[in-house]
Design a protein around this nucleic acid. Structure first.
Length: 192
DNA sequence: GGTAGGATGGGCT
DNA sequence: GCCCATCCTACCC
């Protein structure tokens, strides 16, 4: 598998919505497994009460207030971990939830980790599923995504695509905001 | 094809 | 004590 360069830190030092859109089509890599990011959600912080960072700096949310290009991983529903990418310039909160991947490398390893997935489309088409498929855990909290075993890279062949926009999934606060972004027509998104 | 309900535990009020 | 940025199974068209 040949991929382009690792995204530099400056890629992430921008507005949360712009980052959520720009991450579509880029490739999330963990060890020997990798997938194209096909679905994201923006969590800008501030007035957005759905953002964990909107209630201020706590032990859980501290990485969101730090330097961009790091991993914010949190535990939810007693069972699952969700993977976010810290964005915005350092000191300003903002993160992007990665909700679905199109698997492109390490498929056998993903299938072993996700025996419940009957089809390839189900390996990583949800935020809890993709962390299991790639082996991302709370130990990756704060990981630097510009170096090491968990990184984001440019794709080998950048594709052009339309971006579909919808409200975010599974939240109650600010539920109507159009902050979910998908590669239009992609089969690997969590839902239309 | 669709959905209701349960699993399961950390974070925060 | 309540609330979750979820997923899977069972069950029902």
């Amino acid at each position: 598998m040949a991929l382009g360069p690792i995204l530099p830190r400056r890629f992430y030092a921008r507005d949360t919505i712009a980052a959520a859109r720009a991450l579509l089509g880029r490739v999330l890599v963990k060890g020997a497994t990798a997938g194209i990011i096909v679905e994201t959600e923006a969590y800008p912080g501030g007035d957005d009460l759905a953002s964990h960072s909107s209630r201020g700096l706590t032990n859980r949310t501290r990485v969101i207030f730090g330097a961009p290009g790091h991993a914010y991983v949190y535990f939810v529903y007693g069972m699952y971990e969700c993977f976010n990418i810290v964005v915005e310039p350092e000191g300003r909160p903002g993160c992007v939830l990665v909700r679905a991947l199109e698997p492109i490398a390490g498929l056998d390893e993903m299938r072993r980790r996700r025996p419940a997935a009957r089809r390839m489309e189900d390996l990583a088409n949800g935020p809890g599923k993709l962390t299991i498929a790639l082996g991302i855990t709370l130990r990756d909290y704060g990981a630097d995504l510009t170096r090491g075993s968990l990184v984001v890279r440019e794709p080998m062949e950048p594709a052009s695509f339309e971006i579909a926009v919808t409200p975010r999934v599974g939240i109650s606060a600010c539920a109507a905001l159009p902050l979910r972004f998908l590669i239009a027509g992609n089969r690997f998104v969590s839902k239309i």
